Computed example of a mutant assay.
Amino acid sequence: MSRHIEPVSPVAVLTTRGVPFRLHEHSPALTVADLRSGTDFCIERSVKTLAFSTRDDRIVLAAVPGPAKVHYAALAVLVGVRRADLRPSTPEVLAGLGMEPGGISPIPTLSDHDGLVMVFDESVPSLGPIFCGSGSAHQTIEVGADALVGLWKEPLLGVITAPPNRTAP
C-alpha cells in the first residue's frame, strides 16, 4: 500500500536545516533562454535539474551545470536502468514533489526519500555559489553547491553531462 507524503518547499528545507541562501523573484522561466532574457543570473553559475520517472516507479532528479546537456545513457547506467526506461516526469509527478515545470529543484522536498533518486554530475559540488530551481518557475534559489549536495542522505555522483559539441544520446 502506498502512502501519500506531503512535500515540503525547498525554501523550508533550507531554512530548517540552517543552510544560507537567497531567494530571487523573476518572471516565469521555463528554459535557459528565459533565464538569459528575464534575469541577470550567470548561467555558468547555475545548476539545472531534470526530473525523470522510471518503469519501476522511481523518480530520478538529475542536476547538471546550467550550460551542460544531460548524457541520458550515462544517467541511466548510474541509476541502474535502461535508457529506454527513463522518461520525463509529468506535471502531476512534479506536483507530488511540490514542484512545477521550470522550477524543478535539486533540494529534497520529501521527508521519505523512498523511490526518489538524486543524481548530481560530479562537477556540481565544486561549483561554489550557484543558482538552482526553487520548485516554482518564478523563483530561483542561490545557495552553495556543496551545501546543496549535503542535503541528501545518499546522492549519486557521476559524469552525467554530454561532452561539449555533441548531442546527448
Rank of each mutant, 00 (worst) to 15 (best):
D114F: 01
E92D: 15
G128H: 12
I141E: 00
S123V: 08
H4E: 08
G18W: 09
V60R: 03
P88I: 13
F41S: 07
S37I: 12
T161L: 07
I141D: 00
S27I: 08
G18Y: 07
A33K: 14
K153Y: 14
E6K: 08
A68E: 08
I59E: 01
P155I: 14
T16V: 06
V79E: 01
R55C: 11
L86A: 06
L156G: 04
V119E: 01
P106I: 04
D56I: 13
A84S: 13
L116P: 01
I43A: 06
G102F: 07
A76G: 02
V93Q: 12
V79M: 01
D34E: 09
V32Q: 12
V159P: 03
I59N: 05
R22Y: 04
R36I: 06
G115R: 07
R36F: 00
T161Y: 02
V93T: 15
I160S: 01
K48Q: 09
P108W: 11
A74F: 02
R58Q: 15
L30A: 13
A33L: 11
R45E: 11
R22M: 08
D146Y: 05
R87S: 13
I5M: 02
E154N: 15
T49N: 10
A73L: 04
F131V: 12
A162R: 12
A68N: 09
A76Q: 05
L156I: 12
E25M: 08
D146H: 14
R83F: 04
G38R: 15
D114T: 13
V60G: 03
K69A: 03
A95I: 09
R58D: 10
G135H: 01
S126R: 13
A12L: 02
K153Q: 13
D146N: 06
T140F: 00
V19Y: 00
R22N: 08
F21E: 03
V124E: 04
A137T: 08
E6C: 03
V143Y: 00
Q139R: 13
P163H: 12
S46A: 15
R3I: 11
S111G: 15
T15G: 02
G38V: 10
E92F: 10
M99R: 11
